[in-house]
Amino acid sequence: MTSKTAPPRRPFHVDRGESLHAWLRHMRDHEPVYFDTTMNSWRVLRHADAVRVFSDWSTFSNDMHRVMPAQEFIDGNLSALDPPAHKNLRGLLSQGFTPRMLGPFGSRIESLVVEILDQVDDRGEFDLAADLAYQLPLNVISELLGVDREGREVLRRCSDAQLTLSTDDPTDGAFIQNREEAMREILDYLREHARERRARPRDDMISRLVHAEMDGRRLTETEIVNFSVLLLLAGHLTTMGLLGSMVACLDEHPDAMAQVRADRSLVPNAVEEVLRYLPPVPDAGRVTNRDVTLGGVTIPADQFILISLTSANWDERAYPDPARFDIHRKPNPQLAFTHGIHVCLGAHLARLEAKVALDVLLDRYPAWEVTGVDWYENNTICAPRRLTIAVERHG
């Protein structure tokens, strides 16, 4: 089914999502699965259908390269693999990325937040998007990977280039080529570091990945480099969106802000609700391995699918009153990190950064007010580009 109902153009950045969510609500009721000629893909809008797609990897493949122009960024890219290759590689990669390994890093994240805020301490107003939401995950990823100041600038240039890229058609060859060109410098930089860590390991993630072993298998250099870049893009840009949206949401909902201030045990709940309310990545892609019926529509094999996380996270069938920002929402089966075997490997780190950052902000500022906000006009990320806040300091 090809929908004849066109979505509003970039509505989120015009009216904070009112027209977008009204349209998505209509489509969930009447055309929950449809072919989008603009994006050259099948769109999936309901929560239950999204969970089915994410859970059934044998039908809905992560190997999207066969329906896209040739790409180099494949080996080591967990987001492009299916079992058994996915299981084996994830087992190796996760050795350097478990909650147990990252747990002690919480105190370092807190120090980084304090260091960043100290630099704006003389201002009564600052841009939280640029000064904290952008800087913190970039610094965290840099320290985890073990890159120096020079490498941090390379990471910054790669992230900045990704933020400028947007497309209506994710299968477009020019878009894919531009994206890979934007990654070229960081791929070359990390390849040199992987070679150096093989000879002289340090206490960082690249060293752990270089020397990780499972059933006699070790990661190749290309797998290590590509996973490190995936970690950069997923760990930096999505966490950037989460941090900015978290502050914006709490400012827009003062009752929730007051409750979190009064009871810090609500901080994790608040983070989960932000992930539901404004998922940093709006869509997730898959490819059909065979003909399949979904949402009453038959989708042929070898078709590109885009699951709308924005829509699934506001599906009335999964969430009572989804337009309400509710930090007490339980259960909250939000899909911001997707679901199933491909659930984001960096989800724990993103949640940790958001929780620590919010705790520090609440400790440091007894009050703040958002004085201006602009959003990235980008189809691939939902994040404030500018978020100025006026802060009150403790006497």
Rank of each mutant, 00 (worst) to 15 (best):
T239R: 10
D169M: 13
R157N: 13
P11M: 01
A212M: 14
S61Q: 07
D168M: 13
A258S: 15
S159G: 15
R202D: 13
S79R: 14
D321P: 08
V120S: 10
P8H: 00
N378R: 01
D160Q: 13
L155A: 12
W314H: 15
L92I: 03
L136N: 07
F73S: 05
L102Y: 03
Q71V: 04
A248H: 15
T298C: 11
E316H: 02
D131E: 13
I224E: 01
F175G: 07
S159M: 01
G372H: 14
A199W: 04
L275Y: 10
L187S: 03
E223A: 02
W23G: 14
A6Y: 02
I307Y: 02
A50F: 05
P84F: 00
S311C: 05
V370E: 02
A85W: 06
L352N: 04
L132A: 05
H211A: 08
L237W: 05
N40L: 02
E180Q: 10
D15T: 03
L230E: 14
W42H: 04
T222L: 07
V44G: 00
V113Q: 03
A284N: 12
N378L: 00
G173K: 07
T37G: 08
G295H: 06
Q119N: 13
D172N: 14
S159F: 01
R276L: 00
R261I: 11
H26Q: 13
T238S: 15
T164H: 12
Y134R: 03
N226I: 12
L132G: 09
D204S: 11
D326V: 13
M214T: 09
T239V: 09
H13T: 15
H86T: 03
A383L: 09
A383M: 03
P366I: 14
I74R: 02
I186F: 06
L190A: 04
P170M: 05
N88I: 12
S107I: 06
K4N: 08
P83N: 10
S142V: 09
S41C: 09
D121V: 15
L278A: 11
G151V: 02
R286P: 06
D363S: 15
Y277E: 01
A390T: 12
R152L: 05
A234I: 03
N379E: 10
L138R: 07
T2H: 01
A367R: 15
Y365G: 12
W368E: 11
I307K: 02
K330M: 01
L136C: 11
L81Q: 08
P322H: 10
V260G: 08
S107G: 03
A383C: 06
